[in-house]
């Protein structure tokens, strides 16, 4: 379990990182926290010809709130998100951080790295899709922002070009009633199924809702459960019905962590629990 050979390049700013990516070609990869890439390299499942280490690029480690929403720098660690003071509408982010791996993983792994890795059970990928974040990329052709809803293309595949790097994730709007919950048999493991939800409740009635599931599709799966939610009373019965509807509308895969049928049942439970948590948050 030793990685294959690669050349190592340290970028000192974003421009240099992009230049290096351009120069080194499609087989080069960005190295940020390395908490997903390094294990894959140790298994030789990933064999980049070159690594562009951006861990020392200054100015990419921040949580900033302004008129455009909450901006999270790509190199912000999970731990920084977990312990950050964020405005009220974004509390789901630090709350969800406790689901990200274990404590040392959270200390080293980065927000941008998780988004770039594109694991369909990643908490940040789910929340980015849920909250309709924008993924801000820098490349040789300049800067662009891709909606998270269009960013994830399947297992570990994203809209980022090989010569682009993620610099920021922008959460445009507050989501005061949002929650993420998930299930794995052991604490800290990748979720078997994860559910991220947000809600708007007016006068005790659910007026809008959004639901994203992880672990049921090759990318975060946006599930339309409006039929069970919108216009219904904000109560346990509604959340359970939303869970059942979500379970019916997915066709998850089977693997050693659970069959497709089991994942459907987990989805029903987790959706219902996430809405319960969101409603009381």
């Amino acid at each position: 379990m030793k990685p294959a050979a690669f050349t190592y390049h340290r970028a000192h700013d974003v421009r240099e990182a992009v230049e290096l990516l351009t120069e080194l070609g499609d087989e080069a990869k960005i190295l940020a926290g390395g908490q997903s890439l390094a294990p894959m390299m140790n298994f030789r499942l990933a064999r980049p010809s070159a690594l562009v280490d951006i861990t020392r690029v200054p100015g990419l480690d921040y949580l900033r709130h302004d008129a455009d929403g909450l901006r999270i720098g790509a190199l912000t660690t999970h731990r920084a998100v977990e312990t950050a003071g964020v405005p009220d509408g974004f509390r789901v982010l630090p709350r969800a951080a406790r689901w990200v791996g274990h404590y040392p993983i959270r200390c080293r792994g980065t927000f941008g790295g998780s988004i770039a890795h594109g694991d369909p059970t990643s908490e940040w990928c789910l929340l980015a899709v849920l909250l309709e974040a924008g993924i801000v990329l820098r490349g040789p052709r300049g800067r662009r922002e891709v909606p998270a809803t269009e960013f994830f293309h399947g297992f570990f595949a994203t809209a980022a070009e090989p010569d682009e790097m993620i610099v920021e994730i922008r959460f445009p709007g507050a989501a005061p009633r949002a929650a993420l919950t998930e299930f794995a048999q052991r604490q800290g493991d990748f979720a078997v199924v994860a559910a991220a939800v947000s809600l708007t409740i007016e006068d005790g009635v659910c007026s809008a809702a959004r639901l994203v599931l992880g672990g049921v599709d090759p990318q975060p799966a946006v599930v339309d459960a409006d039929q069970a939610l919108v216009g219904r009373s904000a109560n346990e019965t509604t959340w359970r019905a939303a869970g059942e509807l979500a379970a019916e509308s997915i066709d998850p895969p089977s693997d050693g962590h659970g069959s497709g049928a089991y994942r459907k049942r987990l989805a029903a439970t987790l959706v219902s629990r996430a809405f319960t948590e969101a409603a009381t948050s």
Partner: peptide
């Protein structure tokens, strides 16, 4: 001062 898995960091870093 940060806890890390030394198997997931390259020495050069």
């Amino acid at each position: 001062d940060q806890p890390v898995r030394a198997c997931l960091v390259f020495g050069v870093q």
